[in-house]
């Protein structure tokens, strides 16, 4: 059974962020819309915000293991898209990213409202990019 403390989970999410940004960059065409390029270049800021959550509102519940989710499993489909190019792949990666974050949000709602809010913001931004591409 996969289990994470909050900081372990955030470290995994940081991996997801970096991996997703790299994967989209690889799959995006030269004429990719600005909104997509902004999303990719926003990874550093997203990582910074995630790291901040890790050290800010830490309470007793933070150390309870979070179970019922396996980030590595979720990363696998993204791995399959890597190396290919084209908008379809970008769309699939973003859909996958949003699906993963919604799943994590459901798990962390009772543990860290800060992380929940951050992921809500990230999925909202990703959804905006997705609708532009679609």
């Amino acid at each position: 059974m996969s289990k994470y403390t909050l900081s372990q989970l955030i470290n995994k999410i940081i991996e997801v962020e970096e991996y997703t940004a790299r994967s989209i960059l690889e799959s995006a065409k030269d004429d990719a819309p600005n909104i997509l390029m902004d999303f990719i270049s926003g990874v550093d800021e997203r990582v910074r915000m995630l790291s901040e959550v890790k050290t800010s509102m830490v309470i007793e519940m933070t150390l309870e293991p979070i179970t019922g989710i396996d980030i590595d499993d979720y990363l696998k489909p993204i791995t399959n898209y890597r190396g290919e190019t084209g908008q379809i792949q970008t769309i699939e990666i973003l859909r996958h990213y949003i699906k993963l974050y919604k799943k994590i949000m459901d798990k962390v709602y009772e543990v860290s409202i800060d992380l929940y809010n951050l992921l809500y913001r990230f999925t909202r931004d990703a959804t905006r990019v997705l609708s532009e591409l679609e």
């Binding site: 403390t5 909050l6 900081s7 890790k54 050290t55 800010s56 830490v58 309470i59 933070t62 150390l63």
Partner: peptide, 22 residues
């Protein structure tokens, strides 16, 4: 402060961060 708590007490960094927060 949290990291120094870990160094001296030995607890996990998250627990130390929680201690400082409290």
């Amino acid at each position: 402060i949290a990291r120094i708590i870990v160094q001296n007490h030995g607890k996990h960094i998250d627990e130390a961060r929680g201690e400082v927060r409290r």
